[in-house]
């Protein structure tokens, strides 16, 4: 049994006066893929964005409770959000490469964190990140072209490379394939399977098949509550809760 990487305990989230998450407690293991599923508006993205404090951007969003990453509390005034985010990468729903060259997109993270001392080192990191994201062979001859000139699937892998480049331990993925066609989706899913060896991955998805294919653990959210969490195999074959049963068999949602 691997160690727990993220430990959430009684996480409440409010948007203004509206409560979006109700006492979420969760244990996420190291080097596994955890899928968060549930109908729209159930709070799975909100929970994901608590883990790297992206909710800070939303003025009216208040988070309480406790989330520990490597036994360190992150829901606190004292948390260094910048170094937290260098440890926890994120890939968004819609590919959002910077309107810069492919090289600069990947190089941005290492540069601002001062991870490299020379141009060669930077090149090395960029190349290896692109390789890990399975994009290098497709773009190695046009690293100076703008990242936005790539196809949707390539852009998303570029975003993954950008996240990997700062050497994170955890990667958060917020519906990374929702804007992609099935072939690009399949490529990303394969990539997630490979990345699992080195990173702890949490993925929010609307596609139950995707959750079943890529994840080891699945958490089912409904109306801001965590209904059920467990081994993916078990959730999809023999869930304990009837709501989970109804959702995965397509009776609602």
């Amino acid at each position: 049994m691997s160690n727990s990487k993220i430990l959430a305990n009684g996480v409440d989230v409010y948007y203004g006066s509206k409560q979006a998450l109700f006492g979420i407690s969760m244990d996420i293991k190291e080097k596994e893929v955890t899928a968060l599923i549930g109908p729209s508006g159930c709070g799975k993205s909100t929970f994901l964005r608590c883990i790297n404090r992206m909710n800070d951007l939303i003025e009216i969003c208040k988070v309480s409770g406790s989330i520990k990453v490597d036994n360190e509390e992150i829901i606190s005034e004292k948390t260094d959000v910048v170094s937290l985010r260098s440890k926890i990468g994120m890939v968004f729903q819609k590919p959002n490469p910077f309107p810069k060259s492919i090289f600069d997109n990947v190089a941005y993270g290492p540069t601002i964190h001062g991870l490299v001392d020379s141009k060669n080192e930077l090149e090395e990191i960029v190349h290896s990140s692109l390789k890990k994201a399975g994009l290098f062979d497709e773009v190695k001859d046009r690293l100076n072209e703008p990242g936005t000139s790539l196809s949707g699937g390539q852009q998303q892998r570029l975003c993954i490379a950008r996240a990997i480049a700062v050497n994170p331990e955890i990667i958060l993925m917020d519906e990374p394939c929702s804007a992609l066609d099935p072939i690009a989706t399949a490529i990303i899913e394969e990539l997630i399977d490979e990345l699992r060896l080195n990173y702890t991955i949490i993925i929010v998805t609307h596609s139950m098949q995707q959750a079943a294919r890529v994840s080891q653990k699945t958490c089912f959210f409904h109306l801001g509550e965590l209904i059920e969490t467990g081994e993916t195999n078990k959730i999809f074959t023999n869930p304990d809760n009837t709501k989970t049963q109804d959702y995965i068999t397509g009776r609602f949602g």
Partner: peptide, 8 residues
């Protein structure tokens, strides 16, 4: 968001 997410 993309920039913040890589730790800017």
């Amino acid at each position: 968001e993309g920039a913040l997410a890589v730790g800017a």
